[in-house]
Amino acid sequence: MGFVVDIPLWGAIAVAFFLLVGASLTLIGAIGFLRLPTFYERIHAPTLGTSWGIGGIMLASMIYFTLSSQRLVIHEILIGIFVTITTPVTLMLLARAALHRDRAENDLNVPSKFRNEQDD
């Protein structure tokens, strides 16, 4: 393991903590993604990975590179901002697609449109 640069002990503990928090939240999200029975419940599971899963690993990377290169490294925050902005877009589009398909099949578990529109 010679490729890991030595950093102070408190830094290493912080990096390890945030890494493990992020990774375990991602794993829990994936497990929930497999276990939940319906599509609309399943869209909640990946948000664990995209909120604190990403956040934890981003923080760990920021602390590690800042300490090991002796200067402020915060470009990881770009990934965080990017994912925070894009996840709602993908989930919303997917949910609307699913609603559209379920309504087209007259699935009774899905609420119908608020008003009867024909212009869509």
Binding site: M1, V4, V5, D6, I7, P8, L9, G11, A12, I13, V15, A16, L19, L20, G22, A23, S24, T26, L27, G29, A30, G49, I57, Y64
Partner: peptide, 19 residues
């Protein structure tokens, strides 16, 4: 601290791989 980081990175990679 190198051992701590190495272990944490390996564990995290295992968990993310499982995900």
């Amino acid at each position: 601290s190198a051992i701590i980081i190495f272990t944490a990175v390996s564990l995290a990679q295992l968990m993310i791989g499982a995900a």
